[in-house]
Amino acid sequence: MGEIIVVTSGKGGVGKTTTSASLACGFAKRGKKTVVVDFDIGLRNLDLIMGCERRVVYDFVNVINGDCTLKQALIKDKRFDNLAVLAASQTKDKDALTQEGVAKIIDDLKAEFDIVICDSPAGIERGAFFAMYFADRAVVVVNPEVSSVRDSDRVLGIMASKSRRAEQGLTAVKEHLLLTRYSADRVEKGDMMSIADVEEILGVKVIGVIPEAPEVLSASNSGVPVILDEQADAGLAYTDAVARLLGEERPMRFVEPKRKGFFQRMFGG
């Protein structure tokens, strides 16, 4: 039986889809049979970040409605044999997701794959609820910024009380934070909350810290998840996060300010 990991945040634009895509590739690279599912019904985007947007034929809602089989809707990744994507539907129907429909898909995926990553939409509406409902683990993506931290706390609270695990009285969903857009320089200057600050406020441990880096945008521009960029700090930070999710110990990298040269320190920049 596979493990279900939800990537969620509450707030939009913090890097959920970027994270889902990178974690999925990371797990596949480590030999895990992985599927990544876009729950953002109406606003499909994971396919673009994964670089398979032109190969979407069927989507999540097609499977629920019985227009096609689950197998037909799974898009095989071109880079990894053991990685598949299930695209979100672009329907405007808010009630396209049904509890039974989603449950059936999740159970089928769980039987077939080692890792099922659920890419949650922003907010706490239907799509976000279903993305987290079945989870065994949660990766809460958070920017070290007030509104993101507050929304993360809301999402953690909802998960603790409304998830399937909570309802059935099973062991709680395992929670992790993933800090994105982290700038060690700004933390040192006192302009940005630190890893320890965010951990203290939310009472959850950080499993990875992704530095603010231009490569993240270039990666989504080209449809190649940033984890596959082995020159980029952000990519390496995601690789570390995957290793930690697999139970390995890795020291945090890229969390110290870059040492500046004499001229930079004197004249700025």
Partner: peptide, 23 residues
């Protein structure tokens, strides 16, 4: 000023308050 510290203080208060209300 050290605004990160201010952010943390504000969040600690509001998060505690909201946890109480939502639970």
């Amino acid at each position: 000023k050290n605004t990160a510290k201010l952010a943390k203080e504000r969040l600690l208060i509001i998060v505690a308050q909201e946890r109480g209300a939502h639970s």
